[in-house]
């Protein structure tokens, strides 16, 4: 049985036995694969398993907010699973209300996404492909002098058109009040925070949450290498606190474990 048939069988079973109120995946409609909430097995003819990715868990969060008692199914790649873990951890989704069907990514997609682990913890669909997850851009930028790094990033941030797409598409940006449009900080009818404040605020907020799915970079009309920035921030949090977002529901983020009092980074920066 090929992947598509297998996926249809698994989802069809969940729907037919009423184990889920709906199943979230992609369906080809008018030639475009788009997020689709399957509610009947006969809709599965257009099920899409290709390389296009959408923030499905973000839609799931929206559904769960309105229908907290329903169980929804989701076809989840590794990045979707990492975002689910963050959403569970941050009380945005209840794991008991999510029926997870795991899909491993193809080698081509893993390569395109520069993914460090292109398969979920449980693979229902697809074959496991291993891939080294190094993003060469991080070490390339680290090799620059401080002055060059500063110029590089200021040049990148200057391209920003403040579309807020990086925040809007982010599956782990779930705050109902966002600093980047908080009316106490950003006046209605005024300009959004200037660069680099906008980008650094987002990078800071992503530090213990970014699951490195890369959707922000795909959504950026200005091609700012956001993922490189967030990967570096992830790396810093890992080095300092041994914490990696999206790995396990049990791992508590540093802000919850640091307690009161300032945390001082030991070393030459003093």
């Amino acid at each position: 049985m090929d992947n598509l048939e297998k996926a249809k069988a698994v989802i069809s079973d969940l729907l037919a036995k009423d184990k889920v109120a709906g199943f979230l995946a992609l369906r080809t409609m008018s030639g475009h694969p788009i997020p689709y909430l399957f509610t009947r097995p006969d809709e599965l003819d257009g099920l899409y398993l290709g390389e296009v990715r959408y923030p499905l868990t973000k839609i799931l969060t929206m559904l769960a907010r309105k229908y907290p008692d329903n169980i929804f199914g989701i076809l989840a790649r590794a990045c979707d699973e990492r975002s689910l873990i963050e959403l569970y951890k941050n009380q945005q989704l209840n794991p008991e209300r999510v029926a997870f069907v795991g899909m491993a990514c193809s080698g081509e997609l893993a390569e395109k996404c520069e993914c460090f682990r292109p398969y979920p913890s449980r693979i229902d669909i697809g074959e496991k492909v291993e891939r080294e997850g190094n993003l060469p851009e991080v070490s390339e930028i680290e090799a620059l002098t401080e002055e060059e790094r500063y110029r590089h990033w200021m040049g990148q941030f200057a391209k920003c058109i403040k579309c807020y797409g990086c925040r809007n598409i982010c599956p782990v940006c779930f705050c109902t009040t966002c600093t980047l449009e908080d009316h106490n900080l950003v006046h209605l009818g005024g300009m959004p925070p200037q660069m680099p404040i906008f980008h650094l605020v987002r990078a800071m907020h992503m530090a213990d949450r970014c699951i490195d799915c890369g959707l922000c970079e795909e959504a950026c009309p200005a091609d700012i290498p956001l993922r490189t920035l967030y990967r570096k921030v992830r790396e810093t949090v890992k080095d300092l606190f041994g914490y990696v977002p999206g790995e396990s529901v049990e791992d508590l983020p540093p802000l919850e474990t640091l307690g009161d009092g300032a945390f001082e980074i030991r070393g030459s920066r003093g």
Partner: peptide, 18 residues
């Protein structure tokens, strides 16, 4: 959401579109 497979915007939008 931006339509990721659209030939014009290829999965991006400006703030008005969003």
């Amino acid at each position: 959401l931006p339509l990721k497979t659209h030939p014009i915007n290829e999965g991006t939008l400006c703030i008005k579109g969003w």
